[in-house]
Design a protein around this nucleic acid. Sequence first.
DNA 1: CGACTCGTTGAGCAAGGTCAAAGTACGTGG
DNA 2: CCACGTACTTTGACCTTGCTCAACGAGTCG
Lengths: 238, 238
Amino acid sequence: MSSRSEPRRSTSGSTRGPHGDHRDRCVAVVPLFAGLSPAERHEVARSAHQRTLPRLTVLYPQGSDDPPLTIVHRGRVKLVRISPAGHEQMLRVLGPGDVVGETAFLTSSPADHVATTLEETEVCELHRSDARRLLERFPSVSNRLLVELARRLESTERHLSRLTSQDTRQRIVAHLLEVADGRTEFRLPTTKRDLASLVGTTPETLSRQLAALQDRGWIRLGPRGAVKLVDAAALAEL
Amino acid sequence: MSSRSEPRRSTSGSTRGPHGDHRDRCVAVVPLFAGLSPAERHEVARSAHQRTLPRLTVLYPQGSDDPPLTIVHRGRVKLVRISPAGHEQMLRVLGPGDVVGETAFLTSSPADHVATTLEETEVCELHRSDARRLLERFPSVSNRLLVELARRLESTERHLSRLTSQDTRQRIVAHLLEVADGRTEFRLPTTKRDLASLVGTTPETLSRQLAALQDRGWIRLGPRGAVKLVDAAALAEL
DNA sequence: CGACTCGTTGAGCAAGGTCAAAGTACGTGG
DNA sequence: CCACGTACTTTGACCTTGCTCAACGAGTCG
């Protein structure tokens, strides 16, 4: 969930703490491990693998049996599910502090999605057995993960309800307001193609709806996916 | 998740163990507490409230701030979300052993759905503070809940993907096969009206699609929501 | 027996998906 | 730095799916 309100600390990489392994950084930033002491975090960091990946790299493919528990440290990652018929459905975009891959190791099922970087990205990976050990040893991590899963479940159910109870325009507007998160100007995190699949429509329909919203003066579209909300109140009414 | 494979023990109510409080039964049956010793279960049972509810009773309304953690012991409960516009969307049906209300106390948000009994039902309720204490005290409960949430998240995401990548007929068939769970004859757990909202369509469309499936000889519909799968293999092909 | 809710069937219509083509932004390599 | 190729985006025209409105039949509870 990128929309969480905790601040995203900038990655001023060179500071090294008392236990100064470079992997510590990765663990220190993450809310999931916020309840641990520095020494405990260091212990976690020992079994974590850090990777820096270029733009548009696949972290792991859909169907891989043993996807690691992955924590995004810097950059953005998109999660996409590909249906048997070949339809691409975007699930969500991860930002710094977000976690993916918990369900796979908790239920021992293979990854049901592809994870791809949208820009240069740094991640921390924990393999299944290490992650399991972690949860047993540190109840605070387990509890935070519980809360995280509950939040995500709520958000996914909300998403699902929208899909059946609102029409395309309403879903698009709801999504814009969610991404805006109070701001009046912002940039879409993905291509419009992906945005369309996220809200459950086609690029063509999305394009037409956005144009219509602009014609009526509710929004203003700029280059590079820039969006300006002219009348957020009116949008919220729909 | 009613489709889990753990057996549903019948409620032969009169056996009372060494700690024979009648509330023990309620706790003993539930997978969530399977990792606890009898003494520990007894402790849990002390803070649990048992209720027996007639058919079509509301457990708690949508929007209530402090819905209890509820465990179904006997009977069936349907979860429905009502959109601001008044649209009813059915989320899922709970059977014995299923839990609801964890997200509300984990995220401290109000209930986003109504829970209603479909038949006479016995439930166990734990209030927010008691449930919190429980998770702190018994890591095994916390871990089981974690797995339960992960399963549900997977299932909800699968449901969501279907909604965008499959047409109405495919969703209906997928749902029938899921409810069938290997059997060739079974009874629908809810009214067709609710089933329609669950798969994201209207009763009219559902009715037509089922009739079409019957015409082509894939299924046979009986009274009282009875369904017989004549050619499950062919159905799975769609 | 009557009122009510549920389920089915019919006819019409509109939202939005599909196909096609032209325009535009962006990263790459020379 | 510019030119090119690829992928993304937009617009147009068309057509299908499935929703809506309406009426009727059937089962159920009082």
